[in-house]
Amino acid sequence: MSEAMAPFRLIRPASLDEAMAALAVEGAQPCSGGTDLLVRLRKGLLEPAALVDLTGIAALRDVVCDESGMWVGAGATLATLARNPDLAAYPAVIQAIDSVAGPTHREVATLGGNLCQDPRCVYLNQSHWWRKSNQFCLKYRGDTCHVAPKGNRCRAAFSGDVAPALMVHRAQIELAGPAGARQMPLAEFYNEDGAAHTALQPGEIVVAVHLPPPGPVSEYGKVRVRGSVDYPLAGVAVACEPTPDGLRFTLAVTGTNSKPLLVDIPDPLGEDADAFFAALVKTVQKAVSPQRTTTIAPHYRRLSVAALAGRIARRLAADAP
């Protein structure tokens, strides 16, 4: 018999209204594919009174593509999205989806769940007895962050692959909650705090992601120990778009901070390409803030994600029309 989860009630609403009502009850936790949440439940990292299973809500699985771009329901599974021909116009998004965990996870893991994925830390994602023997940590029952003991916030690293890819394509996220629906740029959905990394309020869920019509070419790259299953030690999405001033690059990095980080590259590609890409690599190195949240050294993650960003940017520039 596996390690027991604390008891909870499973509620399976068939509509968004039913889900909103179920989530209004204290202690209710939304759940979709469960590939992140059930593992945390099993490790005793949360003890919800009720799990509200959103997978029965057909409207959340819709994917619509028209002249205004793509509307992707938060309940669409990553496996379904990877096979969606319209999403192929956003290459980094498809590449990021294909690099999430393993194929069996992607069968049930949803877009919304991936965007809300809990930030990870080597001091947090451990068994209960391991954490207890370490006096727990700032995020859960303890009072000290073992990564940055003098700090006053949780440094767990956001480790989702899909968010940075959507961010370089300027995606908007749609939320629904007790106070109604709201929408914001995906980059603004996240906070630099491993213990409260999204803008979600109690009872609020992600409903959809809206992508503007395809424009930039893009690519997502991921640094990890193994070729499959692993979370990113760091990952970077790069988009490249021609403007009258030259090629402009947009970058977003995951795995280094408590939120996926948009990295601003103010100038377009100029005459001196080598100097430009060297500066781009330096900009990424300075922008990211990897901490001791994995067994791999933060410095390696900083250098490797910056190098990867430079390599991808050069490749996109070479292929640009």
Partner: peptide
């Protein structure tokens, strides 16, 4: 007919 990880799947679902 689809592969699933039974250690992170609820029987009730």
């Amino acid at each position: 007919g689809r592969a699933r990880l039974s250690c992170i799947t609820l029987a009730a679902s």
